[in-house]
Design a protein around this nucleic acid. Structure first.
Length: 325
DNA sequence: AAAGCGGGGAA
DNA sequence: TTCCCAGCTTT
């Protein structure tokens, strides 16, 4: 990060912010409101709510004097209503005790976390601290070609870059660069003042690496039915594990009567649970074993997923999956 | 560590 | 239709 590049980025921001009504103020109340109300979602989506709220409560004192019902009415439609309540609590506290002048003090206020505290401290009070939101995270990850920007790495990278003479403008410049140029999809690299040093430019979508889908836990039932010839197996033609064979399985904690009827299952009893993790979901499968008059297949003769091997073992068919049935 | 918040746009 | 967003609080 050369001095010339710093100037280029700040110049880009100075030009951009004329069109950004929520930028360019040093009033901590307005800054806080914009961070709380705009930061969480698309700006164009939230801007009308921001304007309406500011019109109704132009100052922190006006907000502090209001009752909660009026505050929620002004917030109506913006979502995240707990934030409105936190903001009111904050306003009353600040009206009484004054603004904390640094990040540590701001952090104690209700609804203010590390990002918001750093943003207000740097923009309103000029404290040289880096504010890292999702936009800044993306910019840093791309310029450094870092696919996994962890919290510690981000803290170091952001602090290294910070422009101590204009910390508020610097933080806002990076945020807006991420929001307007270095976007998650289809970044406008041709318009980016940092393109010259960006090591991730060739493959911006890799930085940061797409977040792993959070593994969600799903409950399933599975039927392990012994039948002449082996075990009832079905060919999974669609969905998960398509192409492989497996035991009948479905959503829920126990097989519905219609499923039992379909296989003419008899003597069905619980046989424990099996846990199996895919990259994007965690299954908890409740295994039931029983007998059926037909449909038996030798499991060793069909391609089975590891999940189904586990299910067979849970039902007491140790060797079945290895082809010894 | 993970879920919930809540609205809208993308997939 | 479901998924995801982004920071903070709560569990």
């Amino acid at each position: 990060m050369t001095p010339a590049l710093r100037r280029a980025l700040l110049a880009w921001y100075d030009a951009e912010r004329r069109a950004l009504p929520w930028r360019g103020t040093r009033d901590p109340y307005r800054i806080l409101l914009s961070e709380v109300l705009l930061q969480q979602t698309r700006v164009e989506q939230a801007l009308p709510y921001y304007r309406r709220f500011l019109e109704r409560f132009p100052t922190l004192e006006a907000l502090a004097a209001a009752d909660e019902e009026a505050v929620l009415a002004a917030w109506q439609g913006a979502g995240y209503y707990a934030r409105a309540r936190n903001l009111l609590r904050l306003a009353r506290e600040v009206a009484r005790a004054g603004w904390p002048r640094d990040r540590a003090g701001l952090l104690q206020l209700p609804g203010v976390g590390p990002y918001t505290a750093a943003a207000v401290a740097s923009i309103a009070f000029g404290e040289p601290v880096a504010a890292v939101d999702g936009n800044v995270r993306r910019v840093l990850a791309r310029v450094h070609a870092e696919p996994e920007p962890g919290a510690a790495w981000l803290g170091r990278a952001a602090a290294d870059w910070l422009e101590p003479a204009r910390p508020g403008d610097w933080n806002q410049a990076l945020m807006e660069l991420g929001a307007r140029v270095c976007t998650p999809r289809n970044p406008d690299c041709a318009a980016c003042p940092l393109a010259g040093i960006c090591r991730g430019r060739a493959a911006p979508e890799r930085y940061p690496a797409p977040r792993k889908r959070r593994a969600r836990t799903e409950e399933r039932w599975a039927l392990v039915l012994q039948a002449p010839g082996g075990v009832v197996l079905e060919h999974r033609s669609t969905g998960q594990l398509a192409g492989l064979w497996g035991v009948p399985m479905g959503p829920g904690a126990a097989p519905p009567a219609v499923a039992l009827a379909r296989y003419r299952a008899r003597a069905v009893e619980p046989a424990g649970t099996v846990r199996h993790a895919f990259s994007h979901r965690r299954l908890v499968v409740h295994v039931f074993r029983g007998r059926a008059p037909e449909g038996g297949v030798a499991p060793g003769a069909r391609p089975l997923a590891e999940l189904d091997r586990k299910l067979l073992r849970a039902a007491g068919l140790e060797g079945a999956a290895e082809g010894e049935a």
